[in-house]
């Protein structure tokens, strides 16, 4: 094993980044806003919608993400006429799964904003929408920032699960290289990729926490 071998693996694995990184960003872009909207519904008072939402969150948190991947790729076409591509099935499963977690995180954050904040906003004449956008959500995001950071980092590593759908993300590529070369150093290189990503995210969230401290 030599250095140039490792560098060449590093290069070969980068082909898989489009799936890993793509899945990460698409999941974040959709699941965070979806979780935010759901969290407001969840703290609301509509009984039937509450039940449905509760059921959805129970399903998403109560079953392994791998199983959800299987469902959206293999299962969905059995109960409907929809056959998603491998990567689209992964995207749908990840967004729905992560939205459930973000919903619960944001719900906790919303409960952490005191009643006094709503009352102060009301007597100043803020509308409900203005109160949520200007007063409640900024405080809620600050409260939940550490949990959100945690979720982002978990997501980085969870992207490797799509290897079970035979998508060529970086872990799957590493596995192929290991099998072909009969040399496990590709796994070490893949670890470096994840470590770089989680390091960057950690730094980003440290910065955000400092910036929005109050």
């Amino acid at each position: 094993m030599n250095f140039s071998y490792l560098v060449s693996i590093f290069g070969q694995l980068s082909d898989g980044l489009k799936f890993t990184v793509g899945l990460f960003f698409v999941t974040i872009i959709f699941s965070v806003p979806l979780g935010l909207v759901l969290s407001f519904i969840r703290v609301g008072s509509h009984k039937i919608i509450q039940r449905i939402l509760g059921g959805y969150i129970w399903l998403m948190r109560g079953t392994p993400l791998i199983l959800q991947l299987y469902f959206f790729y293999y299962g969905l076409s059995l109960v409907t006429s929809i056959q998603l591509s491998r990567f689209n099935a992964a995207i749908v499963a990840f967004i729905l799964n992560y939205a459930a977690y973000f919903c619960e995180i944001f719900r906790g954050g919303l409960l952490g904003v005191s009643k006094g904040q709503y009352e102060a906003a009301k007597v100043l004449g803020f509308s409900t929408l203005q109160t949520n956008v200007r007063i409640v959500i900024p405080q809620m995001l600050r409260i939940t920032l550490p949990s959100v950071a945690n979720e982002f980092i978990t997501l980085v590593k969870d992207t490797s699960l799509i290897t079970v759908l035979a998508i060529d993300e970086i872990l799957n590529l590493a596995k192929k290289i290991v099998n072909t070369d009969v040399n496990i150093s590709a796994y070490a290189v893949v670890a470096v990729y994840y470590l770089i990503a989680t390091f960057l995210l950690t730094k980003l969230f440290e910065y955000l926490e400092k910036k929005f401290a109050y």
Partner: peptide, 11 residues
């Protein structure tokens, strides 16, 4: 209205 515990917007 002014409240006992101020309720300024902390952020």
């Amino acid at each position: 209205m002014v409240f006992q515990s101020f309720h300024l917007f902390p952020h």
